[in-house]
Design a protein around this nucleic acid. Structure first.
Lengths: 140, 140
DNA sequence: GTATATGCAAAGGGTTTGCACGGTT
DNA sequence: AACCGTGCAAACCCTTTGCATATAC
């Protein structure tokens, strides 16, 4: 079903703001609400930040977008049909790498079988120290 | 080395507030800054929230405490010598389970060998749906 | 026409900062 | 005595909420 159908199906209305926010999320990938606002305002300057927040909530509710927490800042949104990926965030340089989730599959299966836990591995970043920073004696 | 020595070694001073905050972290486990404040104020009511924040930063800097992000709220602090564990956070019921990190070891090794990434698996929670919530048809 | 969505402004959590006073070294 | 640490208040960032107006249905 297309995005308009999805909104209708759940009793939501189709509005220009929702179209713009959805487009911004799809184009930007890993965008914060602020960044989404800026993008949306290029086409429609009067759109408000609170509308972006409310719209993201709706779009997430109907399964068109998701968010992930990469670090201490605001969450980032991306479209649901992006390939699922894991974010590796380095605590020294704050760099973010996106890698395929396949590397985590055995881990996810173990959590499923041993804990009964259905993991959304993309939702929270994995923190640590990246290769480049490890090679430096002390990156502090 | 004891905690006072650790502070001295890095040029920090030993103060009653730092003693109280460290004690609170050790006793509470997974405490937010607010919760730590409340505990500290039982013994010393004039201690300020900003002191708690500044103290946690110092204690973390000298390796006496760490923090983890369990969900959307504030971070939680615990002493470094707690057994390393993973937090499983359920997005339906918001429940938190702590499990041994051993289940993740193959995953951590894969990240190390394939990406050169040294993972701090305890720092960010793993999100998903817990066993209890999966057994309910629709937990929304 | 009616209910939902929006813009705006204000309030709300959590965290940080500036500054003068007080305490540790 | 010198400097770091603290209390207090204000500022800050991110997010939510109340309300009147505008808009999709």
């Amino acid at each position: 079903m297309d995005w308009e159908g999805r909104l209708h199906a759940q009793g939501y209305r189709v509005t220009p703001q929702r179209a713009l926010v959805l487009a911004a999320v799809n184009e930007l990938a890993h965008a914060t609400p602020e960044e989404i606002l800026v993008r949306v305002q290029r086409q429609s300057p009067r759109v408000n930040l609170s509308t972006v927040y409310r719209t993201l909530e709706v779009l997430e509710g109907v399964g068109l977008v998701t968010h992930a927490h990469l670090g201490h800042g605001p969450p980032t949104y991306h479209s649901v049909d992006d390939n699922m990926h894991i974010h590796l965030v380095c605590r020294r340089c704050d760099g973010v790498e996106s890698i395929s989730e396949s590397i985590a599959r055995p881990f996810l299966e173990a959590l499923d079988q041993q804990q009964g836990f259905a993991t959304d591995i993309g939702h929270m970043a994995v923190h640590g120290v990246c290769r480049a920073c490890r090679e430096v004696p002390d990156g502090r």
